[in-house]
């Protein structure tokens, strides 16, 4: 594959966790990837060190992508779960921050794709099982991920005729720093106890590994899912089926 023939993807939250695993898979499959994160890593062809809630971050990513070739895929993966407090104890500013990092960012990335991705392109939004059910202490996060799913479904309808598909992946608990933070929010004294409680509560009795989540994301990003549009694919060991 020549440099210019490589399909181009923008992946947000690409420095670690699920996003880093997506970048690894795409690069191995011959894609040119523009990574966005607050921190820089070496893995992608180009990198934007920036905040995904800001429009200029996406503008920079778009410019870098244009230098690499035709934009085909945007993976809106950057997200954060917030502090972990009951709604009654949550400040509106904290609510706003969680909405911004999860929803505003996904809006900006999705809009960029609907404006600029080539036909045959795809958007994959990383939602969460918290986008399909309530999670006490994570009200803003659940609200935000439900919103990401609404955005996904609507964008799927609007993108369909220009042949840009839009789907979401809803990971269950995944072995990244997010789950460590969640465990601390549930039980500050003994996060290990919270962790093992969550592990036991999962039908498959374990968390996902990042490469199990990124496999679903790259599948939805590529041609093997050509007729899949507007779907929310759970990768959660059966959590939301039970």
């Amino acid at each position: 594959m020549t440099e210019t023939a490589r399909p181009v993807a923008i992946v947000s939250g690409a420095a670690r966790g699920i996003g880093a695993s997506v970048v690894e898979r795409l690069v191995a499959a011959g894609w040119s990837v523009v990574g966005i994160d607050l921190d820089t890593a070496e893995s992608a062809a180009a990198w934007v060190e920036g905040d995904v809630t800001r429009e200029d971050t996406w503008q920079r990513a778009r410019d870098l992508a244009a230098d690499l070739g035709a934009l085909r895929v945007v993976v809106n993966n950057a997200g954060a779960q917030g502090a972990g407090a009951r709604i009654a104890d949550t400040e509106v500013e904290d609510f706003g921050r969680v909405m911004d990092v999860n929803v505003r960012s996904a809006f900006l990335g999705t809009r960029l794709a609907l404006r600029h991705a080539e036909p045959g392109g795809a958007v994959v939004n990383v939602a969460s099982n918290a986008g399909l059910r309530g999670i006490p202490r994570f009200g803003p996060y659940a609200a935000a991920k439900h919103a990401v799913i609404g955005l996904t479904r609507t964008a799927a309808l609007e993108g369909a005729r220009q042949q840009v598909r839009v789907n979401a992946v809803a990971p269950g608990p995944t072995d990244t720093r997010i789950m460590q933070a969640v465990a601390r929010a549930f039980d500050a004294d003994s996060p290990e106890t919270a962790m093992s409680r969550m592990t036991r509560a999962n039908p498959m009795g374990r968390f996902a590994q990042v490469d199990e989540v990124s496999a679903a994301i790259t599948w939805l990003a590529g041609p093997d899912s050509a007729y899949v549009n507007g779907c929310v694919l759970s990768v959660d060991g059966g959590l939301t089926a039970a």
Partner: peptide, 28 residues
């Protein structure tokens, strides 16, 4: 694509899922 994904280990953490392959029919 959906069949190969669900049949193989690519979906090793996926269970209880109903995956629409419908061009967006049920997203409306």
């Amino acid at each position: 694509g959906a069949l190969l994904y669900l049949a193989s280990d690519a979906s090793s953490y996926v269970t209880g899922v109903v995956l629409p392959v419908d061009g967006g029919w049920t997203a409306v």
